[in-house]
Design a protein around this nucleic acid. Structure first.
Lengths: 213, 213
DNA sequence: TAGATTGTTAATCGATTAACAATC
DNA sequence: TAGATTGTTAATCGATTAACAATC
């Protein structure tokens, strides 16, 4: 097992490994070789073995990998079993959609509560999650220390809001506001979801289909 | 100007360039050097110049780049001025959120219409977009030939739905269903939005903050 | 045991960065 | 003109792939 900084490229492949292994697991597949997993995922067997070697030895010569075991090992690496708790800040359509449809539990997150400014929403529940007034946000975070905040608020308030939450100890931001957030504080991470970027990538590709042959 | 296949790494940086240039443009900034843009974006000036050189020569020695011009050049490369039209398939919470909040027009897309199975939604409008019954989907696509379909439908129907739409000439899929779509048909592209993956990446990072120093 | 497949080292390939002549 | 900054070529760095000894 190499002990080196894990590259971004590897980190971004981990969730994909997890998805495929989870699917295989659900289908009842017991073992898989790097070769056949690579074929399914359209990557080389070498890459899979190289990637995994950053974290340990999970296979067995002549056999391959036990699907259930590798799945749970990667889940562990990703922190799925860490019992992280999160709050949703902004319960508009997008926040609502996430609360209603996204399976937080499946990736090990517990949704503590949600916040919104709209009086009409405050006090209501979405998918068993209570919506609280924005005024209670800081007090709540101070008291319950959620690990992650989901930001589905207007762009303009995103950075100041993040700053306040960082000061209160929030470590991760799942940021849907299309601004890139940043901080000086070490150990705080942002995952900025740029819908615009992905649609533009698609636009680029359909504009030049010939370039890909 | 090099004439070579443009790498994925470059393609994925283009929308980000566009975002930054758009912001500078809105702020009234007239010119910028690769150096100062690089500082803002936290990448090297070399990389910016190298990336741009895939598409042409947009700068001027001793001056840098004209913001408005470079912005519109990159917009053009991304296909923003192609007049693409799209349809939204599935008007649940997520589809609703996109229709309501996402500025399609800003990236050059026109939303033609939306489809849903729910009788309660059919005939209503969200943000000026009419929701039609799913039964009309194929006939509609056949007649109006939208370029892109946004898929905010249940996972299970995503691939068969995509197959039907591909057969009718849809070229791009902005896919929010968390399954990886694929096709044999050349010139068709998928942009799969994996919410799960990004949340897991965040989970990974807050689990090992020390690895990043 | 023989065959299969790992983990790891070495080779290759590609992407990023540095350097600099060209020139506005 | 002198200074600034490009576009591009060359150097470096890192990531991917290939190869293979170890071994289940």
């Amino acid at each position: 097992m190499k002990k080196q900084k894990v590259s971004d490229a590897v980190i971004h492949r981990l969730p994909r490994y997890y998805r495929y292994l989870d699917e295989l697991h659900n289908k009842g597949v017991v073992r898989i070789s790097s070769n056949s997993l690579g074929q399914k995922m359209d990557i080389t067997a070498s890459q899979i073995r190289q990637d995994l070697s950053c974290f340990g030895e999970f296979g067995q010569q002549g056999y391959g990998y036990n699907v259930a075991e590798l799945r749970s090992e990667i889940g562990h690496i990703l922190g799925i079993d860490s019992g992280y708790r999160l709050i949703v800040v902004g319960a508009g359509h997008l926040g609502h959609a996430l609360l209603q449809n996204f399976d937080f539990q499946k990736v090990g997150f517990q949704v503590d509560t949600a916040f919104d400014v709209s009086p009409a929403l405050i006090g209501t529940k979405i998918h068993d999650v209570t919506i609280r007034p924005m005024e209670e946000l800081e007090h709540y975070v101070e008291e319950y220390h959620p690990n992650v905040a989901v930001l589905t608020v207007p762009q303009s308030v995103a950075q100041p809001l993040a700053d306040r939450l960082i000061a209160l100890g929030v470590k991760g931001f799942w940021n849907f506001t299309n601004v890139e957030l940043s901080t000086q504080t070490k150990g705080v991470f942002f995952e900025d979801i740029h819908f615009v970027d992905t649609l533009l990538t698609l636009s680029y590709r359909i504009s030049r289909p010939e370039e890909l042959y």
